[in-house]
Simulated assay, not measured.
Amino acid sequence: MLLSALAQSQTVQGSVTDGQGELLPGVTVLLKGTSTGTSTNADGTYVHPDTNR
């Protein structure tokens, strides 16, 4: 019997805000349980493509 597993890729994206709802640029966003991450851009949003989770 031959079994194979394929990792599914997905994109993680979002925004980071402070307590007043203001978007925060330059914040580091790490994927939980990893050292893989990205930073928010000038408008406080981020995109981390090809995440195998």
Rank of each mutant, 00 (worst) to 15 (best):
L2E: 12
L2R: 08
L3H: 07
L3Y: 08
L3G: 07
L3I: 10
S4A: 14
A5G: 11
A5E: 11
L6K: 07
A7T: 08
A7Y: 07
Q8N: 12
Q8R: 10
Q8K: 10
S9Q: 14
Q10D: 14
T11Y: 02
V12W: 05
V12Q: 06
Q13F: 06
S15P: 00
S15K: 07
S15H: 03
V16C: 05
V16H: 02
T17G: 00
T17R: 08
D18S: 07
G19A: 08
G19I: 04
G21W: 02
G21R: 03
G21I: 03
G21Y: 02
E22T: 13
E22W: 00
L23A: 09
L23D: 02
P25G: 12
G26C: 08
G26I: 03
T28F: 11
V29C: 13
V29R: 07
V29S: 14
V29I: 15
L30P: 00
L31K: 06
K32I: 04
K32H: 06
K32V: 06
K32S: 13
G33I: 07
G33S: 10
T34P: 05
T34V: 11
T34C: 13
S35K: 10
T36P: 00
G37D: 06
G37A: 10
S39R: 12
S39E: 14
S39D: 10
T40C: 04
T40Y: 01
N41K: 11
N41R: 12
N41E: 14
N41D: 15
A42W: 01
A42P: 00
A42L: 10
D43H: 01
D43W: 03
G44Y: 01
G44D: 06
Y46S: 01
Y46D: 02
V47S: 15
V47P: 00
V47Q: 14
H48L: 15
H48R: 09
H48Y: 15
H48F: 15
P49V: 05
P49A: 13
D50H: 12
D50R: 12
T51I: 08
T51S: 06
T51F: 07
R53A: 15
